[in-house]
Structure formats: C-alpha cells, structure tokens
Amino acid sequence: MTQLTQAIVLGLLIGGVYALMASGLTLIFGVMNIINIAHGAFLVLIAMVTWWMWRETGIDPIVASVVTTPLMFAFGWVVYTLVISRVRNAPPSMSVLLTFGFAMVIEGVLNVTAGNKFKSAAPSYFEESFRVGGISLPKAQLFGFLAAMAVLAVLYFVLTRTWTGRAIRAATQNPSGAALVGVGASGTAALAFAIGAATTGVGGSILSVLYPFFPASHYDWISRLLGIVVLGGMGSLPGALAGATILGLAETLTATYGSLAWSTLVFYLVIMAVLLFRPHGLFGARLREDAP
C-alpha cells in the first residue's frame, strides 16, 4: 500500500509540473487557434538559460524563474509581433510550419552556443527528500510542483477575475462579439501569446532541475504536451490539468509496477482509448461541423 501511495504522490507532483508546461500551449490555441510547435523549444531555451545562470552565479534554478518569466513574456510579445502576426489569419497549417521552423532556429542556436550535450542543474537539495510518514517527498519535485501550482493559480486568477482575463476569454469564445465591445483581436492575441510564452519561463526553470536536456529534446517535450492538450481538450486549461495528471500517474505507476520504458506508451494508449469515446477530449467542447 505504501508503494502505491508513493507512486501516486510522485505522479501528482510531476503532473502539476506538466500542467504548467501545457497551460501556455492550450491558452495560445484557445485564443488564437494556433498550435505553437515552438513551445517545447521555448522550454528547452529557458532550461538552458537557467542552467547557465545556476552555473555562473549559483542562483537556485527555480528561484531564477523570477527572472526568466518576464524575460519570456517580453520574448513572446516580440515573437508574436514580428513573426506570428503575419500568419494570424492564414490556414492553421501555416502557423504549424512557421512555429516548427522557429523551433528549428532555436535548436540550431543552442547547438552552436551551448553544444549538443545533456545538461541538468543540480541545486544542493537535488538528492534530498522530506519524509511524511512512510512517504518520501523529493525536494526538487516538491518545490517544482509548488512553483507550478503558484503560477497556475495566478494564471487562473488573471483569466477569471481581471478585465484582461475577461477580454482574453471573450476573444476566445466570441471574437466578433468581443470586437463590438472594444476588445481588439490583435492586441488580445499578442497578450495571450506573451502569457503563454511566460509560462515557459517557470516551466523551463523547473525542467532544468527535474530532467536532463539538450537542444533537440524539445521534440520529446512538444509531443508530450500536445498529448496532454489533446487528451484534455484543445483550448481547455482544466483539460490540460487533467491530462497532465493522467500523464504523471501513468509514468510513475508504470515505472513502479512495470518499466519506465513503457510509461510514455501507456499514456498514449490512454489517449487513444479516451478519444474513441470523446473525440473532443475530456474537457473539450463538441463543435458542429455542419455549420457554415
């Protein structure tokens, strides 16, 4: 029983981190109908920046997110203004190709500047744990989870309790109606993209501690995050949280009672099973395809 409880706790801790990483991706899709394939590259970019800051200054990698988050917010705004806005009204395939190309550019720059080798930040508490009864809580996973939950709480508050959040949700649900009350589609889209990019500031800093990474590892991360978003429902933040929790539990339970090598396969089997019965995902809205 203790082993099962331990696996569930670790799965929830990892799932919280995955939820943060996927939240920006699903937010951008919900507002702009754009799948940002470069989202995984953003995470790896910030992981690399965090690793460099930790190596040069000794700053705690998770605390470094105080710097990396506003940095990625500004970076996201610039990327949208100079790049993404040019294909805002183009077919979705254009945004997929464009963001994939942008991910390739980030990977190439990191290969040249940092080298094609695995890196990982290891703060002093990296191998330490808290003990609660018979359950072990690794400090790195716990601190990463708490940081992720704090950011998700702030994101939820902004989206549900502020005028900015209401404007973003209005542009998501009814763009023409939002325009009638003065909510500009272009400005809202830029803000949503910047907020989505800002979540990678914290997510990438946490990633640098919990997982080894190198420039090309963004392929693995974007595939995981897209799986989470599809399972939960495209554009749904609660869906991203549910999908991330399922992935975290699938990984830890499979690793505990089977093999870690099978954990990702089990997750995608769960996605296939769910989508057979709910093609729009767990929290996605069913849309009419016959409407003009």
Rank of each mutant, 00 (worst) to 15 (best):
M1C: 05
V9F: 08
V9S: 07
A19Q: 06
L20Q: 02
A22S: 15
S23V: 09
G30R: 05
G40W: 01
M48D: 02
M48H: 02
W51F: 15
W52N: 04
W52I: 00
E56N: 03
V67E: 00
T69N: 01
G76H: 04
W77H: 10
V79L: 15
I84G: 01
V87T: 07
N89K: 13
S95L: 09
T99G: 07
A103S: 14
M104S: 08
V105C: 08
I106E: 00
G115I: 10
A122Y: 07
Y125D: 05
V132C: 00
V132E: 00
G133E: 12
G134N: 15
K139G: 02
F145N: 03
V151I: 15
T164E: 10
Q173T: 11
S176N: 12
G177L: 10
A179Y: 02
A185T: 15
A190C: 09
F193K: 05
G196R: 05
Y211I: 04
F214V: 02
A216Q: 13
Y219R: 10
D220T: 13
L226C: 04
L231S: 07
G232F: 11
M234I: 13
P238E: 06
L247V: 11
L253E: 07
T256N: 14
Y257C: 11
Y257V: 12
G258R: 09
S259N: 15
A261P: 00
P279F: 06
H280P: 00
L287D: 02
D290V: 14
